[in-house]
Write a protein that binds this DNA or RNA. Structure first.
Lengths: 185, 185
DNA sequence: ACCTGAACACCGTTCAAGT
DNA sequence: ACCTGAACACCGTTCAAGT
Protein backbone atom coordinates (compact mmCIF):
# COMPACT_ATOMS: atom_id res chain seq x y z
CA UNK A 1 0.00 0.00 0.00
CA UNK A 2 2.77 2.40 0.88
CA UNK A 3 4.40 1.69 -2.47
CA UNK A 4 1.18 2.56 -4.30
CA UNK A 5 -0.33 5.82 -3.21
CA UNK A 6 -2.59 5.94 -6.23
CA UNK A 7 -5.19 3.25 -6.66
CA UNK A 8 -4.62 2.98 -10.40
CA UNK A 9 -1.15 1.53 -9.89
CA UNK A 10 -2.39 -1.30 -7.67
CA UNK A 11 -3.26 -4.69 -8.95
CA UNK A 12 -6.95 -5.23 -9.53
CA UNK A 13 -7.18 -8.14 -7.09
CA UNK A 14 -5.59 -6.05 -4.33
CA UNK A 15 -8.16 -3.30 -4.82
CA UNK A 16 -11.00 -5.81 -4.87
CA UNK A 17 -9.73 -7.60 -1.77
CA UNK A 18 -9.39 -4.39 0.17
CA UNK A 19 -12.98 -3.38 -0.36
CA UNK A 20 -14.18 -6.93 0.26
CA UNK A 21 -12.34 -6.84 3.60
CA UNK A 22 -13.88 -3.50 4.55
CA UNK A 23 -17.36 -4.76 3.70
CA UNK A 24 -16.75 -8.01 5.57
CA UNK A 25 -15.36 -6.15 8.59
CA UNK A 26 -18.43 -3.94 8.67
CA UNK A 27 -20.77 -6.95 8.67
CA UNK A 28 -18.80 -9.17 11.03
CA UNK A 29 -18.01 -6.44 13.58
CA UNK A 30 -21.65 -5.34 13.55
CA UNK A 31 -22.82 -8.91 14.04
CA UNK A 32 -20.27 -10.25 16.53
CA UNK A 33 -18.45 -7.25 17.99
CA UNK A 34 -14.93 -6.01 17.36
CA UNK A 35 -13.29 -8.81 19.33
CA UNK A 36 -14.43 -11.51 16.92
CA UNK A 37 -11.63 -13.75 15.61
CA UNK A 38 -9.99 -12.10 12.63
CA UNK A 39 -10.29 -15.37 10.74
CA UNK A 40 -14.05 -14.80 10.43
CA UNK A 41 -13.48 -11.49 8.73
CA UNK A 42 -11.08 -13.11 6.26
CA UNK A 43 -13.50 -15.95 5.57
CA UNK A 44 -16.46 -13.58 5.09
CA UNK A 45 -14.34 -11.62 2.63
CA UNK A 46 -13.34 -14.80 0.84
CA UNK A 47 -9.59 -14.29 1.29
CA UNK A 48 -6.83 -15.92 3.32
CA UNK A 49 -5.65 -14.73 6.75
CA UNK A 50 -2.44 -13.42 5.23
CA UNK A 51 -4.28 -11.13 2.84
CA UNK A 52 -6.23 -9.59 5.69
CA UNK A 53 -3.02 -8.84 7.59
CA UNK A 54 -1.35 -7.49 4.47
CA UNK A 55 -4.10 -4.89 4.09
CA UNK A 56 -4.69 -4.21 7.78
CA UNK A 57 -1.70 -5.04 9.99
CA UNK A 58 -3.84 -5.34 13.10
CA UNK A 59 -7.40 -5.40 14.31
CA UNK A 60 -7.14 -1.72 15.23
CA UNK A 61 -6.11 -0.79 11.70
CA UNK A 62 -9.23 -2.42 10.30
CA UNK A 63 -11.44 -0.82 12.93
CA UNK A 64 -9.88 2.58 12.28
CA UNK A 65 -10.52 2.26 8.56
CA UNK A 66 -14.15 1.37 9.24
CA UNK A 67 -14.60 4.33 11.54
CA UNK A 68 -13.03 6.88 9.24
CA UNK A 69 -16.16 7.54 7.22
CA UNK A 70 -18.19 8.06 10.34
CA UNK A 71 -15.54 10.29 11.90
CA UNK A 72 -15.58 12.43 8.76
CA UNK A 73 -19.34 12.90 9.10
CA UNK A 74 -18.91 13.96 12.73
CA UNK A 75 -16.14 16.38 11.80
CA UNK A 76 -18.39 17.97 9.22
CA UNK A 77 -21.28 18.21 11.63
CA UNK A 78 -19.18 19.82 14.37
CA UNK A 79 -18.03 22.51 11.93
CA UNK A 80 -21.57 23.14 10.81
CA UNK A 81 -22.72 23.64 14.40
CA UNK A 82 -19.87 26.04 15.12
CA UNK A 83 -20.87 28.04 12.05
CA UNK A 84 -24.65 27.97 12.37
CA UNK A 85 -25.41 27.20 16.02
CA UNK A 86 -27.27 26.80 18.25
CA UNK A 87 -24.28 25.87 20.33
CA UNK A 88 -25.75 24.07 23.32
CA UNK A 89 -28.40 22.10 21.45
CA UNK A 90 -25.85 21.38 18.76
CA UNK A 91 -23.36 20.09 21.33
CA UNK A 92 -25.99 17.79 22.79
CA UNK A 93 -27.03 16.50 19.39
CA UNK A 94 -23.41 15.98 18.37
CA UNK A 95 -22.61 13.92 21.46
CA UNK A 96 -25.70 11.78 20.80
CA UNK A 97 -24.49 11.09 17.27
CA UNK A 98 -21.04 10.23 18.61
CA UNK A 99 -22.49 7.92 21.24
CA UNK A 100 -24.76 6.19 18.73
CA UNK A 101 -21.88 5.72 16.32
CA UNK A 102 -19.86 3.87 18.93
CA UNK A 103 -22.80 1.56 19.59
CA UNK A 104 -22.65 0.26 16.02
CA UNK A 105 -19.86 -2.20 16.85
CA UNK A 106 -20.02 -3.91 20.22
CA UNK A 107 -16.72 -3.45 22.04
CA UNK A 108 -15.61 -0.51 19.90
CA UNK A 109 -15.85 1.99 22.76
CA UNK A 110 -13.01 0.33 24.65
CA UNK A 111 -10.70 0.68 21.67
CA UNK A 112 -11.79 4.25 20.98
CA UNK A 113 -11.61 5.37 24.59
CA UNK A 114 -8.06 4.14 25.03
CA UNK A 115 -7.05 4.99 21.47
CA UNK A 116 -8.15 8.62 21.33
CA UNK A 117 -4.94 9.85 22.85
CA UNK A 118 -1.61 8.46 21.74
CA UNK A 119 -0.52 7.19 18.37
CA UNK A 120 -2.85 4.31 17.57
CA UNK A 121 -4.43 3.98 14.12
CA UNK A 122 -7.70 4.97 15.76
CA UNK A 123 -6.19 8.17 17.13
CA UNK A 124 -5.08 9.01 13.60
CA UNK A 125 -8.52 8.27 12.15
CA UNK A 126 -10.20 10.40 14.81
CA UNK A 127 -7.73 13.29 14.75
CA UNK A 128 -9.78 15.71 12.62
CA UNK A 129 -12.92 14.82 14.53
CA UNK A 130 -11.20 15.57 17.82
CA UNK A 131 -10.00 18.92 16.55
CA UNK A 132 -13.44 19.88 15.27
CA UNK A 133 -15.09 18.87 18.53
CA UNK A 134 -12.51 20.80 20.56
CA UNK A 135 -13.44 23.88 18.55
CA UNK A 136 -17.13 23.31 19.24
CA UNK A 137 -16.56 22.77 22.95
CA UNK A 138 -14.31 25.83 23.09
CA UNK A 139 -17.07 28.02 21.69
CA UNK A 140 -19.54 26.64 24.18
CA UNK A 141 -17.06 27.38 26.94
CA UNK A 142 -16.61 30.98 25.75
CA UNK A 143 -20.36 31.47 25.97
CA UNK A 144 -20.33 30.05 29.49
CA UNK A 145 -22.46 27.07 28.49
CA UNK A 146 -20.00 24.59 29.93
CA UNK A 147 -17.53 24.93 32.77
CA UNK A 148 -13.99 26.18 32.20
CA UNK A 149 -12.31 23.01 33.47
CA UNK A 150 -13.74 20.54 30.98
CA UNK A 151 -11.57 19.39 28.10
CA UNK A 152 -12.53 17.92 24.74
CA UNK A 153 -10.40 14.79 25.19
CA UNK A 154 -12.06 14.24 28.54
CA UNK A 155 -15.61 14.50 27.22
CA UNK A 156 -14.89 12.24 24.25
CA UNK A 157 -13.28 9.61 26.46
CA UNK A 158 -16.06 9.81 29.04
CA UNK A 159 -18.92 9.52 26.57
CA UNK A 160 -17.17 6.70 24.71
CA UNK A 161 -16.88 4.79 27.98
CA UNK A 162 -20.53 5.15 29.02
CA UNK A 163 -22.23 1.79 29.55
CA UNK A 164 -24.83 0.87 26.97
CA UNK A 165 -28.29 1.42 28.38
CA UNK A 166 -28.96 -2.31 28.12
CA UNK A 167 -26.21 -2.85 30.73
CA UNK A 168 -27.74 -0.55 33.32
CA UNK A 169 -30.74 -2.63 34.28
CA UNK A 170 -33.47 -0.75 32.47
CA UNK A 171 -32.84 2.76 33.78
CA UNK A 172 -35.30 5.39 32.59
CA UNK A 173 -32.74 8.09 31.99
CA UNK A 174 -29.85 7.36 29.60
CA UNK A 175 -26.38 7.78 31.08
CA UNK A 176 -25.58 10.37 28.45
CA UNK A 177 -28.32 12.64 29.83
CA UNK A 178 -26.72 12.56 33.25
CA UNK A 179 -23.35 13.55 31.81
CA UNK A 180 -24.95 16.34 29.76
CA UNK A 181 -26.57 17.75 32.89
CA UNK A 182 -23.17 17.63 34.58
CA UNK A 183 -21.48 19.46 31.73
CA UNK A 184 -23.88 22.36 31.59
CA UNK A 185 -22.53 25.33 33.52
CA UNK B 1 -13.59 -26.46 48.20
CA UNK B 2 -17.23 -27.36 47.90
CA UNK B 3 -16.57 -30.63 49.72
CA UNK B 4 -14.96 -28.76 52.60
CA UNK B 5 -17.00 -25.87 53.83
CA UNK B 6 -14.97 -25.60 57.00
CA UNK B 7 -11.33 -24.74 56.74
CA UNK B 8 -10.31 -27.22 59.43
CA UNK B 9 -11.20 -30.18 57.22
CA UNK B 10 -8.96 -29.03 54.38
CA UNK B 11 -5.44 -30.18 53.95
CA UNK B 12 -2.86 -27.76 55.24
CA UNK B 13 -1.18 -27.32 51.87
CA UNK B 14 -4.50 -26.44 50.25
CA UNK B 15 -5.12 -23.73 52.81
CA UNK B 16 -1.60 -22.40 52.43
CA UNK B 17 -1.80 -22.39 48.64
CA UNK B 18 -5.10 -20.57 48.62
CA UNK B 19 -3.79 -17.68 50.66
CA UNK B 20 -0.54 -17.62 48.70
CA UNK B 21 -2.62 -17.31 45.52
CA UNK B 22 -4.68 -14.48 46.94
CA UNK B 23 -1.57 -12.60 48.03
CA UNK B 24 0.09 -13.22 44.67
CA UNK B 25 -3.04 -12.13 42.79
CA UNK B 26 -3.14 -8.92 44.78
CA UNK B 27 0.48 -8.10 43.96
CA UNK B 28 0.44 -9.18 40.31
CA UNK B 29 -2.90 -7.56 39.44
CA UNK B 30 -1.79 -4.34 41.14
CA UNK B 31 1.50 -4.38 39.24
CA UNK B 32 0.41 -5.56 35.79
CA UNK B 33 -3.36 -5.22 35.61
CA UNK B 34 -6.04 -7.89 35.70
CA UNK B 35 -5.32 -9.09 32.17
CA UNK B 36 -1.87 -10.36 33.06
CA UNK B 37 -1.21 -14.00 32.10
CA UNK B 38 -2.49 -16.28 34.86
CA UNK B 39 0.82 -18.11 34.76
CA UNK B 40 2.48 -15.12 36.43
CA UNK B 41 0.09 -15.33 39.34
CA UNK B 42 0.83 -19.04 39.74
CA UNK B 43 4.58 -18.45 39.56
CA UNK B 44 4.45 -15.58 42.06
CA UNK B 45 2.52 -17.86 44.43
CA UNK B 46 5.02 -20.65 43.89
CA UNK B 47 2.45 -23.17 42.67
CA UNK B 48 1.64 -24.85 39.36
CA UNK B 49 -0.97 -23.62 36.89
CA UNK B 50 -3.27 -26.48 37.81
CA UNK B 51 -3.34 -25.48 41.45
CA UNK B 52 -4.36 -21.97 40.56
CA UNK B 53 -7.26 -23.25 38.45
CA UNK B 54 -8.29 -25.71 41.13
CA UNK B 55 -8.74 -22.88 43.62
CA UNK B 56 -10.07 -20.27 41.20
CA UNK B 57 -11.70 -21.76 38.10
CA UNK B 58 -11.26 -18.58 36.10
CA UNK B 59 -9.66 -15.17 36.17
CA UNK B 60 -12.97 -13.65 37.25
CA UNK B 61 -13.19 -15.97 40.25
CA UNK B 62 -9.80 -14.80 41.48
CA UNK B 63 -10.66 -11.16 40.86
CA UNK B 64 -13.98 -11.57 42.67
CA UNK B 65 -12.24 -13.12 45.68
CA UNK B 66 -9.79 -10.21 45.79
CA UNK B 67 -12.58 -7.66 45.63
CA UNK B 68 -14.73 -9.22 48.31
CA UNK B 69 -12.94 -7.58 51.21
CA UNK B 70 -13.20 -4.18 49.61
CA UNK B 71 -16.85 -4.71 48.70
CA UNK B 72 -17.57 -5.58 52.32
CA UNK B 73 -16.00 -2.31 53.42
CA UNK B 74 -18.16 -0.38 50.96
CA UNK B 75 -21.28 -2.23 52.10
CA UNK B 76 -20.52 -1.26 55.68
CA UNK B 77 -19.87 2.34 54.75
CA UNK B 78 -23.11 2.67 52.75
CA UNK B 79 -25.11 1.41 55.75
CA UNK B 80 -23.34 3.83 58.06
CA UNK B 81 -24.18 6.76 55.79
CA UNK B 82 -27.83 5.71 55.60
CA UNK B 83 -27.93 5.57 59.40
CA UNK B 84 -25.92 8.67 60.24
CA UNK B 85 -26.01 10.90 57.15
CA UNK B 86 -25.37 13.39 55.76
CA UNK B 87 -26.90 11.81 52.68
CA UNK B 88 -25.60 13.92 49.81
CA UNK B 89 -22.05 14.34 51.09
CA UNK B 90 -22.07 10.71 52.09
CA UNK B 91 -23.17 9.64 48.61
CA UNK B 92 -20.39 11.69 47.05
CA UNK B 93 -17.77 10.29 49.42
CA UNK B 94 -19.02 6.75 48.86
CA UNK B 95 -18.77 7.02 45.08
CA UNK B 96 -15.23 8.38 45.42
CA UNK B 97 -14.26 5.36 47.52
CA UNK B 98 -15.87 3.07 44.96
CA UNK B 99 -14.07 4.77 42.10
CA UNK B 100 -10.72 4.67 43.92
CA UNK B 101 -11.18 1.01 44.70
CA UNK B 102 -11.61 0.15 41.04
CA UNK B 103 -8.42 2.03 40.21
CA UNK B 104 -6.39 -0.37 42.36
CA UNK B 105 -6.22 -2.97 39.57
CA UNK B 106 -5.80 -1.69 36.03
CA UNK B 107 -8.51 -3.18 33.82
CA UNK B 108 -10.77 -4.17 36.72
CA UNK B 109 -13.46 -1.65 35.80
CA UNK B 110 -14.27 -3.46 32.57
CA UNK B 111 -14.89 -6.71 34.43
CA UNK B 112 -16.90 -5.00 37.16
CA UNK B 113 -18.95 -2.88 34.81
CA UNK B 114 -20.05 -5.84 32.73
CA UNK B 115 -20.18 -8.20 35.70
CA UNK B 116 -22.40 -6.19 38.03
CA UNK B 117 -25.56 -7.51 36.49
CA UNK B 118 -25.90 -11.16 35.63
CA UNK B 119 -24.49 -14.20 37.33
CA UNK B 120 -20.72 -13.76 37.19
CA UNK B 121 -18.57 -14.42 40.28
CA UNK B 122 -18.09 -10.67 40.47
CA UNK B 123 -21.82 -10.06 40.58
CA UNK B 124 -22.00 -12.48 43.48
CA UNK B 125 -19.13 -10.78 45.31
CA UNK B 126 -20.70 -7.35 44.80
CA UNK B 127 -24.29 -8.34 45.60
CA UNK B 128 -24.43 -7.02 49.18
CA UNK B 129 -22.62 -3.86 48.16
CA UNK B 130 -25.14 -3.25 45.38
CA UNK B 131 -28.02 -3.71 47.77
CA UNK B 132 -26.53 -1.34 50.32
CA UNK B 133 -25.83 1.30 47.70
CA UNK B 134 -29.35 0.99 46.30
CA UNK B 135 -30.66 1.72 49.79
CA UNK B 136 -28.42 4.77 50.06
CA UNK B 137 -29.44 6.08 46.64
CA UNK B 138 -33.10 5.42 47.44
CA UNK B 139 -32.90 7.59 50.54
CA UNK B 140 -31.21 10.36 48.59
CA UNK B 141 -33.99 10.11 46.02
CA UNK B 142 -36.70 10.36 48.68
CA UNK B 143 -35.11 13.58 49.91
CA UNK B 144 -35.08 14.91 46.37
CA UNK B 145 -31.29 15.03 46.26
CA UNK B 146 -31.11 13.00 43.07
CA UNK B 147 -33.58 12.66 40.22
CA UNK B 148 -36.31 10.01 40.27
CA UNK B 149 -35.12 8.28 37.09
CA UNK B 150 -31.64 7.27 38.22
CA UNK B 151 -31.05 3.67 39.26
CA UNK B 152 -28.34 2.19 41.48
CA UNK B 153 -27.19 -0.30 38.84
CA UNK B 154 -26.86 2.54 36.37
CA UNK B 155 -24.76 4.72 38.66
CA UNK B 156 -22.48 1.85 39.64
CA UNK B 157 -21.96 0.84 36.01
CA UNK B 158 -21.40 4.41 34.90
CA UNK B 159 -18.87 5.29 37.59
CA UNK B 160 -17.04 1.99 37.08
CA UNK B 161 -16.69 2.81 33.39
CA UNK B 162 -15.31 6.33 33.86
CA UNK B 163 -11.93 6.80 32.21
CA UNK B 164 -9.01 7.19 34.58
CA UNK B 165 -8.00 10.82 34.80
CA UNK B 166 -4.62 9.95 33.28
CA UNK B 167 -6.48 8.97 30.08
CA UNK B 168 -8.24 12.29 29.66
CA UNK B 169 -5.27 14.43 28.71
CA UNK B 170 -4.73 16.27 31.97
CA UNK B 171 -8.21 17.65 32.57
CA UNK B 172 -8.58 19.85 35.62
CA UNK B 173 -11.90 18.45 36.73
CA UNK B 174 -12.16 14.70 37.39
CA UNK B 175 -14.83 12.89 35.35
CA UNK B 176 -16.50 11.78 38.56
CA UNK B 177 -17.20 15.40 39.47
CA UNK B 178 -19.05 15.91 36.20
CA UNK B 179 -21.21 12.86 36.84
CA UNK B 180 -21.91 13.98 40.41
CA UNK B 181 -23.09 17.37 39.15
CA UNK B 182 -25.34 15.54 36.71
CA UNK B 183 -26.83 13.36 39.41
CA UNK B 184 -27.78 16.15 41.77
CA UNK B 185 -31.42 17.12 41.38
C1' DA C 1 -7.29 -34.88 48.69
C1' DC C 2 -4.35 -32.23 46.49
C1' DC C 3 -0.40 -30.90 43.48
C1' DT C 4 2.24 -30.73 39.21
C1' DG C 5 3.55 -29.79 34.63
C1' DA C 6 2.82 -31.70 30.19
C1' DA C 7 -0.74 -31.47 26.73
C1' DC C 8 -4.54 -29.50 24.21
C1' DA C 9 -7.21 -25.67 22.14
C1' DC C 10 -7.69 -21.29 20.34
C1' DC C 11 -6.31 -17.44 17.96
C1' DG C 12 -3.14 -13.57 16.53
C1' DT C 13 0.61 -13.04 13.47
C1' DT C 14 4.31 -14.38 10.22
C1' DC C 15 6.31 -16.34 6.22
C1' DA C 16 7.83 -19.68 2.55
C1' DA C 17 5.96 -21.12 -1.60
C1' DG C 18 3.09 -20.20 -5.39
C1' DT C 19 0.88 -17.27 -9.28
C1' DA D 1 3.02 -7.50 -6.60
C1' DC D 2 0.04 -10.06 -4.39
C1' DC D 3 -2.23 -14.27 -2.47
C1' DT D 4 -2.47 -18.49 0.24
C1' DG D 5 -2.53 -21.59 4.00
C1' DA D 6 0.70 -23.92 6.81
C1' DA D 7 3.48 -22.84 10.77
C1' DC D 8 4.74 -20.47 14.98
C1' DA D 9 3.81 -18.14 19.41
C1' DC D 10 1.17 -17.21 23.26
C1' DC D 11 -1.88 -18.21 26.71
C1' DG D 12 -6.21 -20.16 28.92
C1' DT D 13 -7.70 -24.49 30.49
C1' DT D 14 -7.65 -29.54 31.28
C1' DC D 15 -5.98 -33.85 32.86
C1' DA D 16 -3.06 -38.05 33.63
C1' DA D 17 0.33 -39.21 36.78
C1' DG D 18 2.31 -38.59 41.15
C1' DT D 19 2.39 -37.87 46.44
Amino acid sequence: MKAHPDTAARRADAVRNRSALLAAGERVFARSGVDVPMEEVAREAGVGRGTLYRHFPSREHLLAALMEEQAARLTEEARRIVAEGPLWDGLVAWLRLYDDGLARFRGASVHVGSGLTGTSPIAAACGPMRTAFAELLGRARELGLVGPDVTAAQVLAMVAALPKDAATGGAEQPCLDIVLRGLRA
